[in-house]
C-alpha cells in the first residue's frame, strides 16, 4: 500500500494505492491521526484503492470522527465499484460524503 498527500485548491488530498486491510490499515491510521494545521478540508482519493476490509473501514471512520470533532470537512472520492459496494453495505455512504471523482469532491468544498 502506498499513501501520498498533497494540497490542491486548499484541500488536503490523501491518495491510497493498493490494499487497505488488517495488515496495512495501521499505516493509514498513523497517517491520518493528526489534523494538519490550518483546518483545510480533507479529501481521501481512493481511485487506486483496489481493496478495503472492515479493518480499513474502521480507519476511515476514525479519521472522519476526528475531522468532525475539529470542525474540518472530510470527503471521499473515486471509489472503484467493488470498494463502493463495501461502503454501501457498511452504511458508510450515509455518513460520509462520497463523490464520483476528484473534481466533484473539490467543487463540494468550494
Amino acid at each position: 500500500m502506498q499513501i501520498d498527500r498533497f494540497i490542491e485548491q486548499d484541500v488536503i488530498i490523501t491518495t491510497v494505492k493498493g490494499r487497505l486491510d488488517s495488515s496495512s490499515s495501521h499505516k493509514l491510521d498513523d497517517f491520518l491521526a493528526e489534523i494538519p494545521a490550518g483546518n483545510n478540508a480533507i479529501l481521501l482519493d481512493f481511485a487506486e484503492l483496489t481493496y478495503i476490509s472492515s479493518a480499513g473501514l474502521r480507519v476511515v471512520l476514525k479519521a472522519t470522527k476526528l475531522a468532525r470533532s475539529h470542525g474540518v470537512a472530510l470527503a471521499i472520492c473515486s471509489l472503484v465499484p467493488q470498494v463502493h459496494e463495501v461502503f454501501d453495505v457498511s452504511g458508510f455512504t450515509t455518513l460520509i460524503p462520497i463523490h464520483p471523482d476528484r473534481g466533484a469532491a473539490l467543487a463540494s468544498f468550494a
Binding site: S53, S54, E85, V86, S90
Partner: peptide, 22 residues
Amino acid sequence: DLTGSLEERRIGGLGVHLVRTM
C-alpha cells in the same frame, strides 16, 4: 449498529455483517 449517527456508531461485527450481506 448501522443506523446511528457518526458519533454514536460502533462497528464491532462489521466484517461479519459485510460478508453475510454479500
